[in-house]
């Protein structure tokens, strides 16, 4: 008896909860969708960037490439950093197929025919920036064809993965 009374009472109550829940879900979906649109960054390889050219100017982009050591220039007075990156494949599988990240970076740096991109950045020089590092750069492509970065992420795969014994024999 008490059970049924409770069920009856809870029917409109349930409705309230369902509506409330749906409102929350809608709010969260709105938050996610609008925030995604506001801060999406397109992940491109240097090849793709060169191919798309004009159409991606002004967009937030994320570019991955191999740092060419000789091109690194840094002016500590103005904290202006500039360097060139060479195209590497964007796909992990492709990188593995070509012999691993370290090998791919090495080839990219030593191949003058690869697509290249000049990067400009204002700020402290990252500790890991050097020849054959992988740079993941966030920023925008300028009208002058230079990529203006506002964030640099660097990875040096060579040191921690590939041990080359320096002396053999036992």
């Amino acid at each position: 008896m008490e059970q049924t009374a409770m069920m009856e009472k809870s029917a409109p109550g349930r409705m309230k909860f369902i509506v409330g829940g749906l409102l929350i879900v809608a709010a969260v979906v709105y938050l996610i969708v609008s925030s995604t649109q506001a801060s999406a960054q397109y992940f491109l390889t240097v090849d793709e960037l060169v191919a798309k050219g004009e159409s991606v100017k002004g967009r937030d982009l994320r570019i991955s490439g191999a740092v060419i050591g000789d091109s690194i220039q840094y002016d500590p007075q103005t904290l202006t950093l500039s360097f060139t990156i060479a195209a590497i494949p964007g796909d992990n599988k492709e990188i593995e197929a070509q012999g691993g990240l370290a090998e791919v970076l090495k080839q990219a740096v030593n191949d003058p025919n690869r697509a290249r991109l000049v990067v400009s950045y204002n700020g402290p020089k990252p500790d890991l920036l050097r020849n054959e590092a992988q740079a993941i750069i966030t920023g925008k492509l300028g009208d002058d064809g230079v990529f203006y970065a506002n964030e640099l992420l660097l990875k040096c795969p060579t040191k921690y993965e590939e041990a080359v014994p320096d002396q053999a024999g036992s």
């Binding site: 938050l31 609008s34 925030s35 801060s39 999406a40 397109y42």
Partner: peptide
């Protein structure tokens, strides 16, 4: 077929109200 990432601004904006 296009890799698109979202950075810290996405998380800050979307989680702030929560």
């Amino acid at each position: 077929n296009q890799k698109v990432t979202v950075g810290p601004p996405f998380y800050e904006r979307a989680t702030g109200p929560l």
